[in-house]
Design a protein around this nucleic acid. Structure first.
Lengths: 204, 204, 204, 204
DNA sequence: CATGAATGAGGCTTCATTCAT
DNA sequence: TATGAATGAAGCCTCATTCAT
């Protein structure tokens, strides 16, 4: 057959991205087949290749999109320049908020690095590095100012990002805790982890 | 042909376990083939089926082994009964020490839950639950005693375990930091995350 | 979208023919895809179907074109009627000249017969037969006159045509030998092969 | 399922080689699918990969086998050392005899060079070169002795080999002419093509 | 205890082709 | 005149698995 009446490239492209994102996040890149994605989208597997050169490129495209959007979202934030504590809280809240709304993107972004081959790996790593640098810079500033008790900004950055990303392993929307509540809890733990928590968490 | 001269069941069994562990950790369960494992072990793929009924069972066996050993190791510890702070520090140090020595086991244990099918999933989940309960109990006791500032012991437990497991995403042995140093840093961050850090980290 | 600005049917038609000719000759009909052709021409694959009903028909069209032009070129020659030796030399020179200028057409014409399906096969075979008959008639006349030493005109015709076509397997323009030189050598060998060579080849 | 009762690797290996040889010769490497081969052999397509790493390697293996056997057969011949004319006739007869019995191998060997990718191409080219050198050496010796009237030994070698190989495009066993007769005719033409034919062909 | 030979399902991908626009 | 979006069949190949030996 041929072009389906009323079919539209932009719509299909979006559907492919969303579907693969969800599947990769839930089952892992290697465990998801192109046919599985196509079935969900409602097209033949061969149609996927109009939009992404191959499965690997599909992963790279998804990860690049996410990282670029994440960096753009951070750039668009109204960031407090001075106080490192406020900056860390701001970053933490931003990250958690962004993450809680896009659990799949963030999860893939951290877990499927191992599925990347060159040259995609280098490209995505560079973008990731730029995001991690944001956090590291805040931590370094706080160390210099003496307000953070941190042994190593690299390790601390990694630990904090891992902690937050980990929410995905157990969080299911509609669960016992609201997203706002989870955000509060994690922010409090992040601040505590760098030796910087004056006020207690507001217990409900 | 039959038995290769000098072949030994116990040795092969061990080699299969170690090899699949390493491969599953590095590339993910779905991305590893039985032949890949067999090649590394130095046997034919068909020989793997003497030791594990199928690929899924191989994963279950590895995960069960790990969880059982982890729980046994905890039982074997000389645990301080009273003080929740000491208990948490003890648990954290135990977990980190155990984890740093067995990064692959721990990583698989957390990441490949999604690859488990029933009835293996239920079995492993139950074992995992027993381990998580250890941490949750400590957290609950500390909350009751008023020494921990925790909003929700379940969330806190998850966040702490995720943080520690995350070391795998960046730690490479022989790197800039010694294992002992990393352990210290993480312990300090874990304690801080539950609002409980009087002394600073010892900076090198 | 529709017609690209400045597009022109005749130009595209010619480009398709030339491109597929070159690709079929170099890689073989079965190894060439419609997209490959389209990419080289600079159009979408679907556009090819405006000019040829399908891939098979594209091959038939190319082969028919070639055979028809070859036969017309022969008809247009100023042919010596009488002497079979002169006729053979004339035919040989004509064929070699024509072939050296159109290696792709000739090569396809001989090699891709096996890729033809009915009814195209019958059509092309008939045209080919007409061309072979020209050579066979010359050989037969030479036999009757006693100037050729030939066992079987059919076999001889096939052997001679194969010999000449074979130049393609090694000839590259701009190589050590000029086209004229190659023509001389082959003519000499063709004449020799039917037992009819008084003068030696002019050695350079 | 598993190993078929009574199945034997050597038998299957031979069957795969013979079947692919026949199919590649008749339809061309690119036009033959692995399934087609497997169907004829009576196994699943996947079984082919126990014997050849991939389709390309299957072609290389077939071509290497042929070239090695051809060279060995030539080595095993009782070759007349002195007279170049006798040597050429001997070579021609050997080649034609060998070729008439193995039309498929020879045909593939000449026609599917274009389907070879590196590093197979280099390997096969080297073997082919060794065979061509045999003929070229004879031609050169005859030139030096003044018994052959040849302009260029390389071109002459190519033309002669092409001529002989060409028999495949029309020869079908059980046809009008016996294999012996065809051999005679071609030998006579080969000798003639290098300006060296005293006696006529024996007409039946 | 282990292999060697095989299977059949399914992996990713490319193919020729169609047809609404 | 040409494209852009799609199809469905088929391409090569790998997979987990089986079982006679």
């Amino acid at each position: 057959m041929a072009r389906t009446a009323g079919s539209n490239g932009e719509v299909t492209a979006q559907a492919i991205r969303e579907t693969s994102l969800a599947l990769f996040a839930r089952e892992g890149y290697a465990a998801v087949s192109m046919r599985q994605i196509a079935d969900r989208v409602g097209v033949q597997a061969s149609s996927l290749y109009r939009y992404h050169a191959n499965k690997q490129q599909l992963l790279v495209d998804i990860m690049r999109d996410h990282m670029v959007q994440l960096l753009e979202a951070w750039e668009a934030e109204d960031r407090p320049e001075g106080d490192p504590v406020a900056a860390l809280e701001h970053f933490a809240r931003f990250h958690i908020r962004y993450h809680i709304k896009r659990p799949d993107e963030v999860f893939i972004s951290y877990m499927e690095l191992r599925s990347l081959e060159e040259p995609g790996l280098r490209e995505i790593s560079r973008l990731r590095g730029r995001y991690e640098t944001i956090l590291k810079d805040i931590l370094r500033r706080g160390m210099d100012d003496g307000v953070f008790d941190i042994a190593d900004p690299h390790v601390a950055a990694m630990a904090i990002l891992a902690m937050i990303t980990g929410v995905n392993t157990w969080y299911r929307s509609g669960g016992r805790l609201s997203q706002a509540r989870i955000e509060d809890i994690y922010v409090s733990m992040v601040l505590g982890s760098v030796g910087c928590r004056s006020e207690g968490v507001v217990h409900v």
